[in-house]
Amino acid sequence: MAKDLEISNIEKKFIFDLLASSQRLDGRKSLLEQRNLNIVITPNKFGDIYIEYKRLDGSIATRLHCKVTSEVVKPKAQRPFEGTFFINCEFNGLAGLNFENYKVGSNSDEFYYGRLIESMILRSNALDLEQLCIIAGLKVWNIRVDVHVLEFDGGFLELASIGCMTSLLHYRRPDVTVRNEKVTVHSFDEKEGVKLGVLHIPIALQFNLFQLKETAEIIKSNSSIENNELVALDCTLKEDLLKDGEFIIALNKNREIVQLNKPGGLPIAALKLIQFAHMALPIIEEITSKMLKAIEIDERQRNKYGHLLSAENDRYAG
C-alpha cells in the first residue's frame, strides 16, 4: 500500500516469526483477531462518520472519515431513471509520511480498493439508485461519499466498507416536492430528511496470506495436505507490506457473496478458499449488528425530546 517504506531484513524476520507463533506486533494473541472497531457519529449532522480501529492499549491505529453529500444533477443519458453514486477515496500526506498528496496511481492498491468498494455497492444494488430520481431524464440526486484517511496503520478496506455503509445508512437527503416540473428542495427546518434506500449491507473482509516456504516449493507440492501459508485478519501497516497475497470477500448477512476477489499473489488450495468464505460470515454478522446498534443509539439521542413534540395521543390497551 505505502511506497518507499522499507522494512529491514531483521524486522521482517521478526514479524514473520511472531506470525508463525500466532502473535502480532501490536499485542494481539491470535492471527484471526481484529482490532477494536469504534464508530463515532458526529451529532447534529447526517452521514458524517469517523470510524476507527483501536489498539489493545486504546490508542488509535487507523482512523477514517466518511462523509456523504448530495446534490441535484442531470442524469446520465443511458440511465435517465437512476441517480448517480460516486465514492472518492483519498490518501494524502495526513495519513503518513509515505503517502503523497494528489497522487493515486492507477496501479496502486488505493485505486484498487476504492474501486472495489464502489463496485461492491453499485453492482449489488446495495444503494437503490431508482429512489434518487426526481424528474426522469432531467433531475436526479447525486450521492457522493468522501473517504479520507486521517491515520493509517492497515485495515483500510474493512474500515472503508464499514464506514461507507454506515454513513449511507445514516444519511438523510433533503426532501423535494415537484410541482409543474418545478423542483423545490426543502431544508431540514421545513421538512424532515429522507433516508436513502439501502437494500442490504455488504461488508468487505480481507484475508492476508503469508507464505512459509519458497514459491517454487508451494507450487510444486500438493498443498491441500500440507500447510503452506499463514492467514491473518486485519493486518497492521508493516504486516501489510510483507504479505504475499490477499483474499477479499464482501458478504451481506443474507448469505450472499457480493464481491469475491483473489487478485493474484500466493496460490492457495481451493478448499481453503471455501473455508475462508464460510469463516467470514460470522465476523460480518457481528460487524453488521455493531453498525446498526451505533446508528440506533445515535437515533435515540437525536429524538430525545421526540415524544414531547409528538401530536399522537396516548393509547391505552383495554
Binding site: L260, P267, A270
Partner: peptide
Amino acid sequence: DEVCLMRI
C-alpha cells in the same frame, strides 16, 4: 486445485 486468481 491451487487457485491463484478468483473474481466474482
